[in-house]
């Protein structure tokens, strides 16, 4: 197979639209793991979708849209990367597309967040006229720039881009694919580093050692470490706040 025709790109573009709106709603649908798996189902390679989704999810660990900040769009990256990787280049080729896509998509995120300003100005005008229906309309239409900023690039990239990009990937030398494969294993470290950056490691670092030792020397499963972690945290906070505790 060399390209996807029209229907699959349309479906994927639609999902890209729906998932970002669901994310705005508060559901976690614009997650690389969910979109990777779903794209894998649609294009017929679920395992590839899971692998690409998992790698991108781990990279995104410490990233968050604090106060409306823009972060790499790993969700869109997972959709496009999985669709292209499934044409034959697999995990390495998929990641080679997914990672730059995630970064480039930040530009469109900024565009969407700026375009929506039109609707709040529209709401101001309707308010002046006392037109409540108009206010409702402005609010509900606000999702359109958000959805299109994801839906259109996904549709176009998979519809027109997948075939040509696949041809380019076939030219990639072996050392490039080998490097990409290793990068897939290394990049989750970025997620951990960013996550640690948000935590007061200076004050609480000994707890990091506890978790490390439990896994590295006792090989305790993660769920066990999580339970023990919660117990230790609660006991510690009780002891620390002992006297002032009501």
């Amino acid at each position: 197979m060399h390209d996807y025709g029209f229907l699959i790109p349309l479906l994927l573009g639609l999902w890209a639209y729906i998932s970002i709106i669901a994310q705005l709603t508060g559901l976690w649908w614009a997650e690389a793991l969910i979109s990777g798996a779903l794209t894998g189902l649609i294009v017929g390679d679920v395992n590839l979708g899971l692998q690409i989704g998992a790698t991108l999810t781990l990279m995104s660990l410490g990233m968050w849209t604090y106060g409306g900040a823009t972060m790499p769009d790993f969700n869109t990256g997972a959709i496009i990367g999985t669709a292209i990787g499934a044409l034959g280049s697999g995990l390495e080729g998929g990641l080679a597309i997914a990672i730059p896509t995630s970064i480039l998509m930040t530009q469109l995120d900024v565009l969407a967040r700026a375009t929506t300003t039109v609707f709040i100005h529209g709401a101001d005008k309707h308010l002046e006229k006392g037109n409540l229906k108009g206010i409702t309309k402005m609010h509900l239409l606000g999702q359109i720039p958000w959805g299109l900023s994801r839906g259109i690039p996904v549709f176009l990239a998979v519809w027109l881009g997948a075939g040509p990009i696949q041809k380019v990937i076939e030219w990639f030398p072996e050392w490039f694919m080998g490097g990409m494969q290793l990068a897939g294993k290394v990049l989750p470290a970025l997620g951990f580093a960013l996550l640690l950056n948000q935590i007061n490691v200076k004050k609480y670092w000994p707890f990091l050692l506890v978790g490390f030792a439990l896994f590295a020397y006792i090989n305790m499963p993660i769920m066990g470490i999580a339970m023990l972690g919660l117990a230790i945290a609660i006991v510690y906070m009780r002891l620390e706040g002992g006297s002032s505790n009501a």
Binding site: L58, K185, P188, A189, F192, L195, L196, I199, N200, V201, Y204, W205, F207, L208, L209, V210, G211, F212, A213, L214, F215, A216, M220, I222, I225, A226, L228, G229, L230, I232, A233, I234, Y236, M237
Partner: peptide, 18 residues
């Protein structure tokens, strides 16, 4: 409390995921 529990889990995650 969340920070402490989180750090312990991250400490286990780093060797297991990588």
């Amino acid at each position: 409390t969340a920070t402490i529990a989180g750090l312990i889990v991250i400490g286990g995650f780093i060797p297991s995921i990588l």
